Structures are given as structure tokens and as C-alpha cells.
Simulated assay, not measured.
Amino acid sequence: MVPAAMAVSVPFCHAVLPFPAAARAPLARSRGGRLGLASCCGAGPISANAVTCAAPVAGAARVGRRRCELFDLHRQVVPYVDSWGWQKSIVERRKALVGIDTDTDEDHSDTLIALQHPPVYTLGNGNDEKYLNFNLEDSPIEIHRIDRAGQVTYHGPGQLVLYPVLNLRHQKKDLVWYQRSIEGVIIRALQSAFSIKAARIDGLTGVWVGDQKVAAIGITCARWIVYHGLALNVTTDLTPFEHIVPCGIKGRSVGSIKQILQKASSGRELNDAELMDIAYESLIKEFAEFFQLSLEPSPDLLL
């Protein structure tokens, strides 16, 4: 029997998770103030100025923007059921603030959680077992049924996962618009940070580089509060994707930022931690800019 993530008791939800000191460490740079990474298109090393840190989009300086708490765990590997418990707890509190009446809205802030997961498969509420290349009882890794839309996908170390909990009453009450907007955020982040030209493919949710899917998106909504989010393959081991048909899309492959950059630079060795930091900083910058949010880093995940 596959455990349902929403039914799992998560006592950790009520604990304080310290903000990791490592996540605040500056990126290592080579001489001349440049990041030690060649751009995808061979235009030379990326300038330190090309990667915008979280600080400029955080805090009260962004007058008129909606507040968004940022829980930065992007260097940590967090069990799936823990992050799922955090989201559920946040959503339940937020639902109480907006109420059932659409004219009632005392919800004054959003939330963004960034992290990585240990190896895990998640099955969306429309999952068909024909997209699994194994029996459910014999899954090679942990597996959970959850309430997001879509089919099966994989999460694991080296994959940057963002869980935005946003009140779309302050954006646009349109789930298709929201998904397309998330795709646009990822596309701009890949271009600005790595000179990778990513794109959408008509009829297929996600972000693609050529025929390879590099980012998956899965969401659900309660009273126009959206949660779950996006998963971007940065330095991910792609082997576990071979045991599934990712997102139920046949005939296409998955890729990662590291794989794409190495191919463009003839196999040059790249620093995994640095790639993750760059991807994280670029992604949250584009996210905050598009949704007009003032990101406020929180030292603790207190739920």
C-alpha cells in the first residue's frame, strides 16, 4: 500500500527548524570577482554581477509589494513528509484568514520555501499506474500519494524545489495563468544565470531545453491559496527518472542544468554547490520580481 502523504502525522511541524548557517554563506569566487563557471553559450565566465543575491529583493524597502516570508533551506535535504506537513499547516491557517466568503480576506502575507528532498516519487491525484515501471509494492524508493495535479514525478538531492504558498486573490484568480507564470519565471532565471535558452512546449506543463524537461510544476488550490510548486533539476542524478514516465509524458527525456552546461563546455568539471546557489538566487529574484513580492528571510520555520 502506498502511504498517502496527507495522512502522515508530522510531529516535526510544530518544532523550530534553525535557519542553516551554510545557506547564508557567500558564493566562492575566483580571482577578478567572477564566478568560476563558464556560460552555457560559451560567452565566457559569468560575472558576479550577473547573479543577483536574495538581499536586494528582501525586506521592507520594496514599498507597496506584498510581504512574503522566505524559508531558505536550499542547501538542505528535507524529508518529503516534513515539507508537506509545513505546507498543510500554513494553508490551514491561511484558509481561516480568507474565510469562505470571497469578500473576506485578512491574509496579509505569502510564503516561499526552498529546499531539496531525499529520493522520493510523488503521485498526483490523477496518477495512472501505467506510468510506473514497477509494482507499487516494490517501489525502489520512498513513494507518496499527494493532492497536487498531475502524474508521477521524482524528487532527489541536487534538485531545487520551491514551494510557494500564494494567495491568488492578490495576483490573478486563474490557475492556468499561474502555471504559465511559474514557467516564465524559470525560463528567465535560466537565461539570466546560465545563458540557457529554455522554453515552453504547447500542451505540456513544465520547462524544456530542446527535448529535455528540466523543470516540473504541480500545484493545487484551496480558496485561491495555491501550494505545492516547482522542481528544477540542477545537479540531479537523473537515473531514478528511468523507472517512471515523468509526468505521464512519453517519448521525451529529462535533463539538468549541470548536464546541459557540461555538454556546452566539453565536459568541464562544475561545482555542484555553486550551481545550486546560483540557480536558487536567480530563481527567487525572478519569482519576487514577477509576483511583486517583498521577500523577508525568516530565521526559523516555526509552524
Rank of each mutant, 00 (worst) to 15 (best):
V2T: 11
G33D: 15
L35A: 03
L37T: 10
L37D: 09
C40R: 13
C41V: 04
A50V: 00
A60G: 01
A60D: 15
R62D: 13
D72A: 08
P79N: 07
D82I: 13
G85E: 05
R94Y: 03
I100W: 10
D101Q: 11
H108D: 15
L115D: 07
P118K: 10
G124M: 06
D128G: 01
D128V: 00
N133S: 06
F134I: 04
N135Q: 15
N135W: 15
E137K: 15
E142T: 02
R145K: 06
I146P: 14
R148H: 07
R148Y: 05
G150E: 06
Y154D: 07
G156F: 04
G156D: 08
L162W: 02
L168M: 10
D174I: 00
W177L: 03
V185N: 08
I187N: 04
L190Q: 01
L190I: 00
Q191H: 09
S195C: 02
S195Y: 09
I196E: 01
A198G: 08
D202P: 11
G203P: 06
V214A: 05
G218L: 02
H228N: 14
P240W: 07
V245Y: 14
C247G: 02
R252Y: 08
Q259E: 11
Q262V: 01
K263D: 14
S266C: 13
L270K: 01
L270E: 01
D277P: 02
Y280N: 08
S282A: 12
I284P: 03
K285G: 02
E286Y: 00
A288N: 04
D300M: 13
